[in-house]
């Protein structure tokens, strides 16, 4: 792929992801905001593809564009009884603006004063088998956090069953 083609693709995807983020903030309907979020996440997956990180792109699509967006829409569907409830006025309050300004300037200052290390891109991308080895190697692998995550999911399961099941007779 030529440099120009890459650049054009990047410009489109970057515009799409930032535009999606603006769409999330600017739409007054919560459902529309959810769909804008979906659009932004798909665009970010495209950016990962441009960087030849196929696995990351796939995970981004599956987890964020798939699970998270669907979950968001489910929550909206289950909690908002009437169609009008989904429409919220935009928040132009002073406290919101101050918070946004503070957060934005904090992040800007942090990044501006820090020379981000420029990593050398590897010529070949490690395949998924290598990823699995990293994940499950005992020494220097990630097997421990992985197993703790399974216990966290067990807790979530037990809690969900406890709250949703009927009383015993």
């Amino acid at each position: 792929m030529g440099e120009t083609v890459n650049g054009v693709a990047f410009a489109i995807l970057a515009f799409a992801s930032i535009g999606g983020a603006v769409g999330v903030l600017a739409s007054r309907n919560v459902v529309h905001a959810g769909f804008w979020l979906l659009e932004a996440m798909v665009a970010v997956a495209g950016l990962y593809l441009l960087l030849s990180a196929e696995f990351l792109a796939l995970v981004q699509l599956l987890v964020y564009a798939g699970a998270v967006s669907v979950l968001l829409l489910f929550v909206v569907m289950l909690t908002l009884r009437r169609r009008e409830d989904a429409v919220r006025p935009l928040d132009w309050s002073l406290s919101g603006a101050v918070l946004a300004l503070l957060f934005g300037s904090m992040i800007y200052l942090g990044i501006a004063n820090f020379d981000i290390p420029v990593a050398e891109m590897p010529s070949t991308v490690p395949d998924i088998a290598a990823l699995g080895e990293i994940l499950f190697a005992l020494d220097g692998g990630w097997v421990l956090p992985f197993e703790i995550a399974s216990l966290v999911l067990l807790v979530a399961l037990v809690g969900a069953v406890w709250w949703s099941k009927e009383d015993e007779k």
């Binding site: 956090p145 703790i148 966290v152 037990v158 809690g159 406890w162």
Partner: peptide, 20 residues
Amino acid sequence: ITMYMALELSTMPAYVLVGY
């Protein structure tokens, strides 16, 4: 990462216990 996951594991059951 281990610290974060362990922290979640230690606090997540607390939500259910509070609303037991």
